[in-house]
Design a protein around this nucleic acid. Structure first.
Length: 490
RNA sequence: GGCCCAUUGGUCAAGCGGUUAAGACAUCGCCCUCUCACGGCGGUAACAGGGGUUCGAAUCCCCUAUGGGUCACCA
């Protein structure tokens, strides 16, 4: 390879939100460039005027930004190879197409939609190709048609014999018989280039060195190769990525409503976790590291680690990764994000020391959206929680002996002047010792009595600390009263 | 249907002719433990099938099967 600077590009069409496959393409384009000190450019392919979607461009910017995948050149940041929006480059393509007509690599075609449709219908299977009807037109016929303003397209003339072979950085040698190649349209009748053509022209003009894209393009790549050869241009390195499928093996698609990046964000996944997870879908590092920051990925990414076979998007693993990221968050950052959820649960600074709550939660939640259900009991103890929770075989507690244990705990807690984790712990552990019972016999009932829940983030010490003395004692009293009433009625 | 590609445990995957076939997620069990979570230890579980080549094949070749991709004036 030459020492030319590596340049990659992400070239989405603004037709909707970015699904996971798109995101992964963008990520790998970015990583291929950055891992080699290269440049990553964003180019918008809006040559299909009919499919433009309002706001789609903004979504692309937003997604890239959220994911931390920043482009060095693009419509919004400029660069020396602009414009970066294909509709603004429209005038360029026709000249290149005509150049191909001159060199006999392409030709004018005047067939209308009706003829093409009936042609397709008369052929049995899909895959039937254009019959080259217009290839036989004479110079004069072409000129007449053109002069009369008849709509036309320009088609690429494929070789009739042999095959086309190219080398793919991940799939290796790919050979396709020429007979499989259709005389594809380069310039449409509305004057816009097709994706395939604009792509080649722009990649060349923008000096793209590595074309990274989904493997759905492997079989059309020979057509690209032919184009590069017809122009006499250097062929870039092709890196086709294995597809990401959903459970069951189907390709992810927007049409089927599969999760887009922003959907996942809305579900509560952290952008970093998604990026990390997606990086590992179809690529693996030399060692067994799994948690990577974008920066780390930029350093260790290697094309050799890209696999050929499609991979299934697995939410279970993403969940795990999300939790890993949450646990690694700086406590202040966690807290800042958690506050929104506390609000949803009506949990305020007056009911509890929210920093302490955050500390407990950071170790336990998988999603921020799980916070409300985890803190509801702090706001208000469940009214009629099941007293059966006191009957715990392993803890050796029952609705009967719990009354006694709770009373002893109440007494020792009530005497506390300083109310904090340490003092609470000492008071309760002293109670354990005084009564000569197991830790669990005191701590299980206390935790139950002040939370009313089977499971809580944190144990008796933490919860009592967060609740404060007054509330803790009040809850203990309520629970003891309920227990007594219950026992008497047995 | 033609063409192209793929196929290691449920999932992500390492492996590039000689390994007890890694590791992670999930799952199960045990330990730790006042619940949950964390952590620790351990278990179940894979080379799609058949032929070759080779002293030796998950690794190379062929066939079959399965899965996927692609066959637009869409990208």
């Amino acid at each position: 390879m030459s020492q030319k600077q590596v340049r990659t590009r992400y070239a989405p069409s603004p037709t909707g939100s970015m699904h996971i496959g798109n995101l992964r393409s963008a990520l790998y384009e970015y990583l291929v460039a950055k891992s080699q000190g290269g440049v990553f450019v964003l180019r918008i392919e809006d040559t299909d005027q009919k499919r433009q979607v309002e706001g789609a461009l903004q979504k692309i910017y937003d997604t890239l930004k959220l994911a931390g995948i920043q482009h060095d050149e693009g419509p919004d940041v400029g660069g020396n190879y602009g414009p970066y929006v294909q509709s603004e480059r429209k005038h360029l393509y026709l000249a290149y197409a005509k150049q191909l007509v001159e060199s006999k690599h392409a030709y004018y075609c005047f067939c209308d939609k009706e003829r093409l449709d009936s042609l397709r219908q008369s052929q049995e299977h899909e895959g039937a190709k254009y019959d080259r009807h217009c290839l036989g037109l004479s110079e004069r016929e072409i000129k007449e048609n053109l002069d009369s303003g008849m709509p036309y397209v320009i088609r690429q003339k494929m070789p009739t014999e042999g095959s086309v072979t190219y080398h793919d950085a991940v799939f290796g040698e790919i050979t396709v018989p020429s007979s499989e190649l259709e005389d594809q349209i380069l310039v449409k009748s509305d004057g816009f280039p097709t994706y395939n053509f604009a792509n080649v022209v722009d990649d060349h003009l923008m000096e793209i060195t590595h074309v990274v894209r989904g493997s759905e393009y492997v079989s059309s790549t020979p057509k690209y190769i032919l184009l590069y050869e017809a122009f006499g241009w250097d062929v870039p390195v092709f890196i086709h990525l294995p597809l990401i499928t959903k459970e069951g093996g189907r390709k992810m698609s927007k049409r089927e409503g599969d999760a887009s990046f922003v959907d996942l964000i809305d579900m509560g996944y952290l952008p970093e976790a998604i990026v990390n997870y997606v990086a590992l879908l179809g690529w693996s590092p030399r060692d067994n590291q799994e948690i990577f920051s974008l920066k780390e990925l930029e350093e260790v990414f290697d094309i050799k680690g890209i696999s050929k076979s499609p991979s299934t998007f697995d939410f279970e693993k993403l969940n795990w990764m999300n939790r890993e990221y949450i646990r690694k968050m700086d406590l202040d950052a966690f807290h800042a994000k958690a506050i929104e959820e506390y609000k949803k649960a009506s949990l305020t600074e007056t009911t509890a020391d929210l920093h302490k709550v955050s500390q407990l939660l950071r170790e336990r939640i998988e999603f921020f959206t799980q916070i409300p259900e985890n803190v509801d009991f702090l706001v208000k103890m469940p009214d009629n929680y099941d007293l059966n929770m006191y009957n715990h075989k392993k803890m050796k507690t029952s609705t009967e002996n719990s009354v006694e244990f709770l009373e002893a705990s109440y007494q020792s807690l009530a005497q506390l002047m300083d109310w904090n984790f340490q003092s609470i712990e000492k008071a309760l552990m002293d109670t354990v010792e005084t009564l000569g019972v197991k830790n669990g016999q005191i701590l299980w009932p206390v935790r139950t009595a002040i939370s009313g829940k089977q499971m809580t983030p944190g144990g008796a010490f933490e919860i009592a600390d967060i609740l404060g003395k007054e509330e803790t004692l009040s809850r203990l009293q309520i629970s003891m009263d309920r227990l007594k009433t219950f026992n008497e009625n047995q």
